[in-house]
Write a protein that binds this DNA or RNA. Structure first.
Lengths: 199, 199
DNA sequence: AGCCCGATTGACTGGTCAGTCAGCCAGGTA
DNA sequence: TACCTGGCTGACTGACCAGTCAATCGGGCT
């Protein structure tokens, strides 16, 4: 007979604890014992469920990033490009609103750490850039975006602005009230699509 | 009599070696012995000139960042805001063109690592954001920038786009020929000020 | 020559952790 | 009851490395 699932999913419990500790102390200065303590679990159990400390971070990242990629891909080609970009910005901002600790870990330890962890995930990250660039290219084909700006370049600016926005919240450089979340995604889209100069 | 200066400035020699090794391996995985080897110098000499491995990185960052801050401050208040932003973008792009290894270290290990090293330098980094925000605010006061976008927010987007651009070069996400450098700074300014949508 | 002192050397130490492993325990099965 | 299996435990080990320090070197000065 199949083994009954444990009352609580210890694996999940450990992963959730890892998010909290990574967010609090940063990946490099968290000891595996910190994670075990936070999860209320023995040190060795962590290694029962995970091959290494690295694997935990990788899993946390890929879990969330694949949702982002799916969101970008899902937006219908018939939807106006500007709305598709708003959907991307919305997803990222909502991810942060819903689980700031997880997003902090993903941004700080993976996305912005392209030399260590990001290196492993560079293809996934690049994938997101490319999907955004496709949206821009589509906008140019439709004539709703100017075509003298390279789509890859526009994609980089758009994603860079978003990442910097989250970084601003994460490190308290800008206020993060709930009304700020509501406006932020639109504001990024407005800045990149509309520009700073009046029309 | 004053001690004659050594034929070569060993301190500088070590600092330069550190840039190369940090750029190649990343700060965390460079051993102090790697730096000593690269500089062709004994292990202990590194500690004769520097208090710690951290101090070397701090010094490299502050040396360059203070030049950036000076550049932003220097731009005259009478200069059109758009040109002042172009000056900022130009300085950053030129810094990369002139010494890509140093800029890689600064961006990857400090600016984008706000959880570890960036934390120490957050005030300096924030300072740059604020100076850029002031330029935007000035533009709004003059009526050349729309005033429904918060200056701090615009500053974040602008700086984020620039940093992402350098990251793109650093990690080979976008081509970095010399003509790319020439256009890049203008393109960032054009994207942020002019927007993607045609006028 | 003999002294001084800062530059230079590199072996060594102390502390830190990631990952291992031998075994315990509980609940299901025969 | 006796056995088995897999979740679970935590002390321990091996590797790594930043930073220390005692000793040596060499050039300038008296």
């Amino acid at each position: 007979m199949a083994q009954a699932a444990p009352a609580v999913d210890k694996r999940r419990q450990i992963l959730d604890a890892a998010v909290r500790v990574f967010a609090r102390q940063g990946f490099h200065s968290t000891r595996v014992s910190d994670i075990a303590d936070e999860a209320g679990v023995a040190y060795g159990l962590v290694y029962h469920y995970f091959r290494s400390k690295d694997q935990m971070l990788n899993e946390l990242f890929s879990e969330r990033w694949s949702l982002l990629l799916a969101t970008i891909e899902e937006t219908d080609g018939d939807t106006p490009p500007r709305e598709r970009m708003a959907a991307v910005a919305g997803f990222i901002v909502d991810s942060y609103r819903h689980d700031p600790e997880l997003m902090k870990v993903i941004i700080v330890e993976v996305t912005r750490a392209a030399n260590s962890f990001g290196r492993t995930h560079l293809p996934e990250i690049r994938n997101a850039y490319e999907l955004i660039a496709e949206i821009v290219a589509e906008g140019q084909a439709q004539g709703v975006f100017r075509d003298d700006i390279d789509p890859n370049f526009a994609s980089l600016s758009f994603y860079g602005a978003l990442e910097q926005l989250l970084s601003g919240w994460i490190f308290d450089l800008i206020p993060s009230g709930s009304q700020d979340f509501d406006r932020a995604a639109d504001l990024v889209v407005e800045t990149i699509c509309g520009g700073l100069e009046p029309r």
